[in-house]
Design a protein around this nucleic acid. Structure first.
Lengths: 148, 148
DNA sequence: TATTGTTATACTCTATAACTATA
DNA sequence: TATAGTTATAGAGTATAACAATA
């Protein structure tokens, strides 16, 4: 082959997803600030709501973060009244995290913020383009072993 | 309305793009390590290659990072022989960053890594799904004012 | 004075390691 | 001894502020 590879870095899926992910994540974080939470706090609420994990160590594994980070996330959410820590009577080492009614409301409010961002993000797309994007994101998330 | 909003946070475009962007970005960073660079270094090479910016302050604006960060990125790339700093004779305050041949080669090798990741990422998609994804990512990037 | 680049400093996020309580 | 959680510490990444050189 005599032709050269002139694909630009910035047009690769990997580079664009990384950059757009950072921008979208930062913007989500800014908006979450009114509720005094960060994306990882909301991710934790979501994990608890799904019932996929209850103890802090289980939550850490699902979220792919260090157990020590779960401690501080849970501390903050507990301070907001969004979660309660309950000792497992069968194994008193385990702290079972329980979503409170306040926590469910907080999750709903944060989800509403994400949906509002979605409208801004995909508002300029044709319906079939939006459907295609959602479908592909769902499949990529699934391929990465992410929940839902 | 009596129905409740039961859209899940994890299925929003905003949340998924943020999470997938982090995963993809981290993976790209891991692979770039063999070339002793990080994503921002490669982004800078790409900006220089595009000719959209030359002075460090211009590069900082295009990349949306602090000027002080451009200093350390340029220091590192200069150490690798990928860029040269040249004082602008017309305004000796300006450091014009010039991509070297070595820098072009480095950019090409890093772009090849991104393309290899693309194949893994979209390999499971149908051709029209992949085309749709690339099209949508290009439009979202454009809407965010990103280059290319 | 204003601007470009640099250096010094501090802050955020998160992981690793040491430690406590329970098993 | 091993495990769940916690606390202490450290590192990466990046911004802000102070500074130097030039305009």
């Amino acid at each position: 082959m005599l032709t050269v590879n002139d694909v630009k870095l910035t047009s690769t899926v990997a580079f664009r997803m990384g950059v757009l992910g950072t921008i979208v994540g930062d913007r989500f974080a800014e908006r979450l600030a009114v509720h005094d939470v960060k994306p990882k706090h909301v991710a934790m609420l979501s994990v608890l709501e799904s019932g996929m994990a209850a103890s802090q160590l289980e939550v850490a594994k699902i979220m792919r973060v260090a157990p020590s980070l779960v401690v501080s996330l849970a501390d903050h959410l507990e301070g907001l009244g969004a979660v309660r820590r309950e000792r497992d009577p069968e194994d008193r080492r385990r702290q079972v995290l329980a979503l409170t009614e306040e926590g469910r409301g907080l999750l709903a409010r944060c989800t509403a913020l994400a949906r509002a961002m979605d409208e801004e993000l995909v508002g300029g797309l044709a319906p079939e383009e939006e459907a295609g994007l959602r479908n592909v994101l769902r499949r990529l998330a699934s391929a990465e072993g992410l929940p839902e």
